[in-house]
Design a protein around this nucleic acid. Sequence first.
DNA 1: TTGTATTTTCAAAATTTTCTGAAAGAAATT
DNA 2: AATTTCTTTCAGAAAATTTTGAAAATACAA
Lengths: 168, 168
Amino acid sequence: MNLAEAKQQFIQSWGVFGSSWGINRTMAQIHALLLIAPEAMNADEIMEELQISRGNANMNIRELINWGIVEKVLKPGDRKEYFTAEKDIWKVAMRIMKERKKRELDPILTTMEQIREVEGNKKDAETKAFIDTVSQIQKFARQADNALAGLIKADENWFTGTLLKLFK
Amino acid sequence: MNLAEAKQQFIQSWGVFGSSWGINRTMAQIHALLLIAPEAMNADEIMEELQISRGNANMNIRELINWGIVEKVLKPGDRKEYFTAEKDIWKVAMRIMKERKKRELDPILTTMEQIREVEGNKKDAETKAFIDTVSQIQKFARQADNALAGLIKADENWFTGTLLKLFK
DNA sequence: TTGTATTTTCAAAATTTTCTGAAAGAAATT
DNA sequence: AATTTCTTTCAGAAAATTTTGAAAATACAA
């Protein structure tokens, strides 16, 4: 397998993995492409490389920017927009965690609180069992939420320059 | 909101959350239903409650069993199969983690190893950058894999009865 | 302003995923 | 072994998601 084939394989695999992570295939493929691109790329280059339409490229690039793992780069004397991906995998993972925490975990907390709150008669066994389950989930989600928040905060401050370098 | 409404709301929400976790809506709803059911339920009851077809119910119940978070219960004198969900949320989370690790993380490791392995000329800058990115991902995935494996193992042995009770 | 290059939007089409329901398969009962 | 009860399978239907491509919007330059 030569470099070109390996790159193809990488992009392809990243697309498959993305799917099982709630990220659509194209979005993951664009991310993979930018991750291994030596230079920032523009929309046309991405379209050409992945054989996708302009609309599709545009939409997914925006989404990657929203996730905070791709950014726009402007080249002087060129009207086209170029895009580049964060290359540090640890940072990428942190951003994704942060985003997923916000989009998925936080809503669970809110909903569980609501459901538990508006519950009336706590006497009968069925109601008690229900409240107990919801409370358990709430407790667990809080634990997870706090753990992630801690990890993210740690990374944003002190960890960045020091301890975590060990993992790289 | 009364108990019935709260249950409905819970099942509905769990379905939505499931979607963003790579679990389909019906599967998550069945899980939610069993999580708060005082008794084990059979396929007909589940179909009736969630208004879904027999095929759909059957398929998703099997899948929940594969994930290890629902199990079959037989009642003496009744030919129907009944189903019940693991009620301990910590255990549920552990089983899901274990399963996702196996289905998602392990394949990434395998693929990254393959891609990195079959790479030839390590001299030019582009190749080097590519190998570096893949290596970084590999390293990160290994870290995550080990961390999860540790957590799972700990839970399966010693933790279960002792330390983690603090979190409940 | 007018023209040109580039990006964004969005309705319709294509694709993928999920669901249905009826038929086939199993298991228990008579 | 025939009947009844229940479970599984799976092809086609329905629903949801993703993609396309052309038109509209925006940005810049002359």
